[in-house]
Amino acid sequence: MMYCQKSDSLELVTVIDCVCMDGTAEIPPCFVFKGVGSSQSGWRSMTTFCIIATSDNGWTDDEYGFEWFRQCFIPHVQK
């Protein structure tokens, strides 16, 4: 049995992340919220913990995935 909660006040958020099986790679996730922006201007902040981005619908696309891969994944796996 599946449980699904719905409400008009909820907003979906997309998360791009990666998990290392042995827990040694600390690769920051990207949270994509609905808001005005595109993949170039939508990247709001990058901390050591996460990236906050916005898109018109709150979903990710190829460009967001590539930017996360380039800015987060590649630098952390090269360490």
Rank of each mutant, 00 (worst) to 15 (best):
F69Q: 11
M46N: 03
D61N: 11
Q40G: 07
V15E: 12
S41M: 15
E63Q: 06
G65E: 07
K6T: 09
S9T: 10
M46K: 09
C4V: 06
E26R: 15
I51H: 02
C30S: 04
V15M: 12
E26F: 13
Q40A: 11
S55G: 09
F33A: 05
R70N: 13
S41I: 14
Q40L: 08
W59K: 15
W68N: 03
D56M: 14
V15Y: 08
S39A: 13
V15D: 06
E11C: 06
L10N: 08
E11H: 12
V32I: 13
G65T: 11
I16D: 00
K79C: 09
D62L: 07
P75D: 10
Q78A: 08
S7R: 10
G65L: 14
G58R: 00
R44S: 13
Y3W: 15
T60S: 09
T24I: 10
P29K: 03
C50K: 15
L10I: 12
F31E: 00
W68H: 03
S55F: 00
G42C: 05
D61T: 04
T48H: 15
V32W: 00
L12T: 07
K34A: 01
S39D: 02
S9M: 09
F31C: 06
F49V: 04
F66S: 04
A53G: 08
D22N: 11
K34V: 05
P28S: 06
K34C: 03
V77M: 14
A53I: 13
S41V: 10
G42T: 02
S45Y: 15
C30F: 01
M2A: 10
I27P: 02
N57K: 13
E63K: 10
E67L: 02
S38Q: 04
S45F: 15
S38E: 05
T24L: 03
M2I: 06
W43T: 02
G65Q: 08
I27T: 02
Q5C: 10
E63D: 09
T47F: 08
R44L: 14
R70F: 08
F73H: 09
F33I: 04
C4W: 11
F73E: 01
W68A: 00
T60W: 01
N57W: 10
V77R: 11
W59L: 15
V32A: 01
K79Y: 14
S38V: 05
R70M: 14
C50D: 10
W68P: 00
D17W: 10
E26T: 09
E11P: 08
P28F: 06
C30W: 00
N57A: 08
S39T: 06
D22G: 07
H76C: 06
S9C: 12
E11G: 05
F69D: 04
T24S: 14
S55D: 00
I74T: 12
F49Y: 07
I52S: 02
T24F: 11
T24G: 07
I27N: 03
C72T: 02
E63L: 04
I16S: 00
I74H: 13
D61M: 01
A53Y: 03
D8E: 07
C72N: 03
G23W: 08
S9R: 06
F73T: 05
D8P: 05
P29T: 04
I51W: 01
V36Y: 11
Y64R: 02
D17A: 08
